[in-house]
């Protein structure tokens, strides 16, 4: 399949009072057109930074140290500011965690859509966009202010804004974590129905392994600013190779909240001040050997997925099938 997005050895640092903090430490990810990829990891693994890096919308105190993001053959970092703007406008669609705060509180919904579509606020295309995201009573929603919408409705509006110009890449950063659990699935179903219709590519950055297992074609697991395992969702969920992925899946009992349980993995995620010269998971890994502490593992293909682990081959041969989440994996 043709590759739409190539993230190559991307490294991003934040300036803090105590010196630079490395959020992405040479992460790589290859996404083919039309795929749906779930990117999972703990808080601090670099997920959000990766999402923002693709659109080059990092805050001012972040700096792009090395690596590249290539969209459809062109480097995102080579764009001029105006090229970048039209790239964001026409090719990308961002969906943020808190839908109400992602909407301008002083503007009725129809005007926010009108600005994006470049049409008058009375244009019928506004209603059809709202209709597309499954909103009922679109006239009323169009005339409302964001604070008058429920969380689920607001997220539908945010999705409508994101897909209004037919982007090829949708980036959803924790799109359901601020919503009631009852409407999470509705929003996710909407989110995944759209790429199926338009052929867009979807990146879902989330804590929620269950929704990734349920909806995504592929999974990328992030740890310490790196993608440590990346491959087809069914393969990874049924038989994780990286020890961290394994621990993550074991810490996630089926349908329950993931966040709280991850502490079951002993130790804390690393705080990087510069390039890590070891496997970032080494201090917490129960399979750790000497080389893990001295050399960064290189990504290798093992059992149909890319894994960054010195003992990947061994792990693939001994690791037991993980049924916990794999059992839910229907698609």
């Amino acid at each position: 399949m043709r590759s739409l997005l190539q993230i190559e050895q991307i490294t991003v640092e934040y300036a803090t009072e105590s010196g630079p903090l490395r959020a992405l430490d040479g992460a790589s990810l290859n996404v083919a057109a039309g795929e749906t990829v779930g990117i999972v990891g703990e808080s601090g693994s670099g997920k959000s930074t990766l999402a923002l890096t693709i659109g080059r919308i990092l805050p001012a105190y972040a700096s792009h140290v090395a690596g590249d993001v290539i969209f459809d053959g062109y480097s995102v970092f080579a764009h001029s500011t105006s090229e970048m703007r039209s790239f964001r406008r026409d090719e990308l669609g961002f969906i943020f965690q808190n839908p109400v705060s992602a909407l301008d509180p002083t503007m009725r919904v129809k005007y926010q859509l009108a600005h994006i579509l470049d049409v008058k606020s009375s244009d019928p295309s506004i209603m059809s966009q709202l209709d597309r995201v499954g909103l009922k009573d679109v006239e009323r929603v169009a005339n409302r202010f964001p604070h008058e919408l429920s969380g689920g409705m607001a997220q539908r509006v945010v999705i409508a804004l994101a897909i209004a110009r037919g982007p090829r890449l949708l980036i959803a950063d924790e799109p359901t974590s601020s919503l009631d659990s009852t409407i999470r699935d509705q929003i996710l179903e909407l989110l995944f129905a759209l790429p199926a219709q338009t052929g867009a590519t979807l990146l879902l950055f989330t804590h929620d392994l269950r929704s990734v297992a349920k909806y995504c074609d592929r999974v990328a697991v992030m740890y310490g600013g790196n993608v440590i395992e990346h491959g087809p969702a069914n393969k990874i969920f049924s038989r994780p190779v990286h020890p961290y992925t394994e621990a993550l899946l074991k810490a996630a009992p089926g349908a329950e909240e993931i966040g709280g349980k991850i502490e079951a993995i002993p130790g804390r995620p690393p705080i990087l001040r510069g390039r890590s010269e070891q496997c970032p998971f080494a201090p917490r890994c129960r399979w750790v050997v000497d080389i893990c502490r001295h050399q960064r593992p290189v990504a290798q293909t093992v059992d149909g997925r890319l894994v960054s682990c010195h003992r990947a081959e061994e792990m693939a041969s001994v690791a037991p099938a993980c049924q916990i989440i794999g059992a839910n994996h229907a698609s």
Binding site: R85, R89, L92, F94, F96, N98, L103, D104
Partner: peptide, 13 residues
């Protein structure tokens, strides 16, 4: 505010 970042992400100048 987040909606400013959202506007940047939508490519507004």
């Amino acid at each position: 505010e987040p909606f400013i970042m959202a506007a940047v992400a939508r490519g507004e100048s």
